[in-house]
Simulated assay, not measured.
Amino acid sequence: MSERFEVRIEYLQPSQLYISKDKLRAIRNKETLKSVPVPVIDFDGKLVMADGHTRAVAAIIEDRDSIFIEITDEKLDLEAYEECVKWCVEEGVFTPYDLVGRIINHEDYRVLWYERCERLHEELKSKRRCLD
């Protein structure tokens, strides 16, 4: 990871459509909310969240308007993140503030988000095999 710095939450583009109510409840009592920066990907100047969506929503609920981030240098599947951002844009999720109204129970989260991501990864894997 690179240098850590603080940005306004509204400048972050989510790559996730939902927040698990259980995960949110668990993280709101943790010091990690304040100490662990949100990893972001710089997509042509747009700060796309690679993780930390629950932390960002928890910060919003706590009336914070900024959060610490780090531009991630991890090897990520950028094609998958681009698709996830596309889903977010299609559903009107442009900032973490848009996720506040998308907090759902964990079982729904598992079905609506995890399973959708698993299907995406399988599709990308299959597509890449065809290209090889």
Rank of each mutant, 00 (worst) to 15 (best):
Gln16His: 14
Asp98Ile: 05
Tyr11Trp: 12
His53Gln: 02
Pro37Asp: 03
Ala59Phe: 12
Ile67Pro: 15
Ser66Thr: 07
Leu12Arg: 08
Cys84Asn: 11
Ile41His: 07
Asp98Tyr: 05
Gln13Thr: 09
Asp51Ile: 01
Ser66Cys: 12
Leu17Glu: 13
Gly101Asp: 13
Ala26Phe: 04
Gly45Asp: 04
Ser66Tyr: 04
Pro39Glu: 08
Asp51Gly: 08
Gln16Ala: 06
Tyr18Ile: 01
Glu6Lys: 14
Asp98Phe: 02
Ile67Cys: 10
Val7Asn: 11
Arg55Thr: 05
Phe68Arg: 14
Pro14Phe: 05
Thr95Ser: 15
Thr32Pro: 00
Asp65Cys: 12
Val100Ser: 05
Asp22Trp: 13
Gln13Phe: 07
Phe5Leu: 03
Leu33Ile: 14
Asp51Leu: 02
Gly45Tyr: 06
Asp44Trp: 10
Thr72Phe: 05
Lys75Gln: 13
Lys46Tyr: 10
Val48Asp: 08
Leu24Gln: 06
Phe43Ser: 04
His53Ile: 01
Val36Met: 09
Ser35Ile: 09
Lys21Ser: 15
Lys34Glu: 12
Gly45Gln: 12
Pro39Trp: 04
Ala80Met: 02
Tyr81Gly: 04
Ser66Ile: 04
Ser35Leu: 14
Lys75Phe: 13
Asp42Thr: 02
Phe43Leu: 08
Glu62Cys: 01
His53Ala: 04
Lys46Leu: 01
Phe43Cys: 00
Ile61Asn: 12
Lys75Tyr: 06
Gly52Phe: 00
Ala56Glu: 04
Asp63Trp: 02
Lys21Tyr: 12
Lys21Leu: 15
Ile41Arg: 14
Lys30Trp: 03
Glu62Ala: 13
Leu33Trp: 07
Gly52Val: 04
Tyr11Asp: 14
Gly101Val: 00
Pro96Asn: 06
Arg25Lys: 13
Glu74Asn: 15
Ser35Pro: 03
Lys34Thr: 09
Ile60Ala: 03
Cys88Leu: 08
Val85Glu: 00
Cys88Phe: 02
Glu74Ala: 14
Asp73His: 14
Leu47Ser: 00
Phe5His: 12
Ile61His: 02
Ser35Thr: 15
Ile9Leu: 14
Glu90Ile: 01
Pro39Lys: 09
Phe94Met: 15
Asn29Ala: 11
Ala59Pro: 09
Ser15Arg: 10
Ile9Thr: 06
Val7Pro: 10
Asp42Ala: 01
Val36Glu: 10
Leu12Gly: 01
Ile61Arg: 12
Pro39Ala: 03
Lys30Thr: 06
Ala50Ile: 06
Arg55His: 06
Ser20Thr: 06
Val40Phe: 00
Gly101Trp: 00
